[in-house]
Design a protein around this nucleic acid. Structure first.
Length: 420
RNA sequence: GCGAAAUUGGUGAAGUGGUUAACACGCCGGAUUGUGGCUCCGGUAUGCGUGGGUUCGAUCCCCACAUUUCGCCCCA
């Protein structure tokens, strides 16, 4: 038997209803905020991700699916959504015809070569938003608000926001040096992983679970002491805006995101529902003011977030937020095989009239056909029998009350229109 | 990439080194020939993740691989 590749999954049955629900709700929220759909390729030039996400991040160094195509091009399956959107923005000069903010949403599969676990796959789905334009704390608040309203619209209420100020690029550089300077003398006390982190991405040492309790950690330099006034003012305005919207947040100085391009505000949406083991962060994002120019575009800031579908689906499923039943309006039952052709035509007629219809094509007893209708969530049953057909009639049966009445085939749609 | 556990039908699962792999749910069919949620009866794994090995004989023992799950790493 051929099985699916490691870390992939098939989506079918009631899970597809969760997918539709989650995505439709997202589209609705984006539409309300006047964000446009943007679709970019699933694979891109490898250099896009190396230059955009950062050479030192694990996502790029060891988690991408890289391949050469038959023309010898170096390609990479996208591990995240932002880089492709930015590339598209630059390549198509989407910024050329407007001074206003450019607002996009996207969704689709992403790929990372990771060890699969529950709610974590090698092919996974993300959807997110990206807004481009001059840095503006109202825009960031709008983006966060969009996320908040989205989770509320889904029916998830215990979502909290963690937010941190990474400052400008030069702020971060100063802080980075201070951090390294402070931690270097303690290098022997650091865990093995943090020794590596100190070299590659020192900020990540901050959210190490092993080292954060240690004594020397209490006096570790804080990012806020290295922020310039512009960074601070911007961040405070953003927090003011969140307060004005009555969005609850927690400033978390240890919050560091995995992608190199973030600066100024970074944030996460976390849920702490006990029923959801481990899957705490369901959405992450932030501002990236240098990414567009780094990738060869104009000096244009950006802000966005990405939601991991698989974790969100787990939550939606666990909390029972989606009606997974899918009622059928009319179930058409020919009494015997002789009436099948008439039943077929009648069933198709009902579909043309807009009713969700199932026709029982099986060669089995009426009893079994009705029994099957009962197992489905059916509203009406149409019984097509020899006697009734002689008078151009069928029996219309209410599946719940079991009341039957004879209806002329020509009047069937009208009759249903009255009842629905 | 590292460490650990698991892998029996559509599902939940019991089970034993040796005739027909328990039970439950589901599904299919039947209970005097055109009517459904109950009841009763019958059917439903030629096979126990895959490939080797040990053995007279393995689903059950050993090895390898795959997949899943958990932890690390990383991250959504």
């Amino acid at each position: 038997m051929i099985t699916k590749p490691k870390g992939t999954y098939d989506l079918y049955g009631e899970d597809t209803k969760i997918y539709d629900y989650v995505l439709d709700t997202f589209r609705g929220e984006c539409s309300l905020n006047n964000y446009e759909l943007i679709k970019t390729p699933i694979f891109e030039s490898s250099t896009l991700f190396h230059r955009g996400i950062g050479e030192t991040t694990d996502i790029v160094t060891k988690e991408t699916y890289d391949f050469k195509d038959k023309g010898g091009r170096d390609l990479t399956l996208r591990p995240e959504g932002t880089a492709g959107v930015v590339r598209c923005l630059i390549e198509n000069k989407l910024y050329a015809n407007t001074n206003n903010y450019l607002k996009y949403y996207y969704y689709g599969p992403m790929f990372r070569y990771e060890r699969p676990q529950s709610g974590r796959f090698r092919e996974f789905n993300q959807f997110g938003v990206e807004v481009f334009g001059k840095m503006n704390p109202y825009i960031d608040a709008e983006v966060i608000n969009l996320g908040v309203k989205y989770f509320l619209a889904l029916g998830i209420e215990n979502v909290k926001i963690k937010i941190n100020n990474l400052g400008s690029k030069s702020d971060r550089e100063k802080y980075r040096e201070a951090l390294i300077g402070y931690l270097k003398p303690h290098i022997d006390e650091l865990c093995e992983d943090c020794k590596v982190r100190l070299e590659k991405n020192p900020l990540r040492v901050l959210d190490c679970k092993v080292d954060s309790d240690k004594e020397f950690f209490k006096n570790v330099p804080k990012i806020e002491d290295y922020l310039c006034d512009e960074s601070k003012d911007y961040f405070n305005e953003l927090l003011d805006n969140l307060n004005a919207l009555e969005i609850e947040y927690e400033v978390d100085n240890s919050l560091v995101r995995g992608l190199d391009y973030y600066d100024y505000a970074v944030f996460e949406f976390v849920t702490d529902d006990e029923k959801l083991k481990g899957a705490s962060t369901i959405c992450g994002g932030g501002r990236y003011n240098d990414l567009v120019s780094t990738l060869g575009g104009p000096d244009l800031g950006g802000v966005g977030f990405a939601i991991g579908y698989e974790r969100l689906a787990e939550i939606v499923k666990t909390l029972g937020l989606v009606k997974t039943s899918d009622p059928v309006d009319v179930y058409v039952v020919p009494v015997t095989e002789n009436e099948l052709s008439d039943a077929f035509i009648i069933g198709c007629m009902l579909k043309d009239a807009g009713y969700k219809t199932e026709i029982d094509y099986r060669d089995t007893s009426i009893k079994n056909k009705l029994s099957h209708a009962n197992k489905l969530d059916v509203t009406y049953i149409v019984i097509v029998g020899e006697e009734e057909l002689k008078h151009y009639e069928v029996k219309l049966k209410d599946a719940v009350t079991k009341e039957e009445k004879l209806v002329k085939i020509n009047d069937l749609v009208d009759e249903l229109n009255i009842n629905f």
